[in-house]
Simulated scan of single mutants.
Amino acid sequence: MGSSRLLFFCWILPLFVANLSLGADPYFQSRCVDTAGNYTANSAYQANLNSIFSQLTSHPDFNYGFYNLSAGQNPNQVNAVALCRGDRNQDECNTCLNETVSELRQLCPLYKEVIGWSEFCTLRYANRDLFGELETSPGSCLYNVQDVPNPDRFNQVLDKLLTNLSSLAAAGGPLRKYAADNSTVGVFQIVYAMVQCSPDLSEQECGDCLSVAKYGIGGCCLGKIGCRILRPSCFLRYESEPFYQTPIPLPSPPHSTGRKVSKERKIPLI
């Protein structure tokens, strides 16, 4: 991660409980949503949540890093959405989801609604619909404490880079909305950036989410050489050193039917 080793944490929306874990991912972030309530230990809700966790950690299909799962029925239904970074393969995705599940079990026990951000994946679950819902809160921000040497020029280049990447990601299809690239700031400085949305969002929704994320830079990490802005439906990251790989290839786009297809996989009712 290069220069990202020195990071501060900026908590967004203090109405939500914020937690930091020092496990496999030292910059893991989570939100345990108080307003959604709690479930009882050994209840039907917990059994359904365990079914979700089991599916995520043993799913045989890659699905290009996106999963939409549901278990049980109201009032104990659990819905989950998981998203892996567009440059990560199936093994890396599975490892990240396993570690994220383990972290959330410890950090947010008995919470009905939770979100966790690892470096390579995001996991959300709740007792309400999540698929296709644009959500920009709760959120979090992490930043490198080092200042850029030429902030005005850096901010101009970064803004243009993120705007271009946001447009590319938003125009992505239902399998992936992801883009990464770099721009030269000066003779000896390059900024590397990545953006990604949950692919169940529309082009407009993805663009809106990334606009909110980009706006968050001003309140968290303006003028810093590295930053991550984390939102439920999207995220962005930029660094002064390379941190992303070549994206996992996607298949040729199928003929459009004009209909939005859910990737939801139902789990036996409990």
Rank of each mutant, 00 (worst) to 15 (best):
D25F: 10
E135Y: 08
N76Y: 11
A180W: 03
V157L: 12
L134P: 09
Y143M: 10
Q204I: 13
S43W: 08
D159I: 08
L269E: 04
F188R: 05
N150I: 08
V17T: 12
S198K: 00
S118E: 05
P242A: 05
N144V: 08
N89T: 10
E119D: 09
S54I: 07
S166G: 14
E135R: 14
Q189R: 02
V195A: 01
Y125P: 09
S3D: 15
R85F: 06
Q55W: 03
R128E: 14
L22R: 12
D152V: 13
T95A: 11
I52T: 08
Q55P: 02
Y125V: 10
D181G: 03
T35G: 10
I267K: 00
N50R: 12
R85L: 01
V187P: 02
C93M: 11
N98W: 04
A71S: 15
T257Y: 10
I270K: 05
K214F: 05
F16A: 12
L175C: 08
A82Y: 06
S198I: 01
C84E: 13
S43D: 09
I270Y: 07
D159P: 07
Q90G: 04
R105D: 01
C32V: 06
G186C: 07
S21R: 04
A169W: 07
I190H: 05
F16Q: 09
E92A: 12
Y244K: 15
D87C: 02
F16I: 13
A47T: 13
V81W: 00
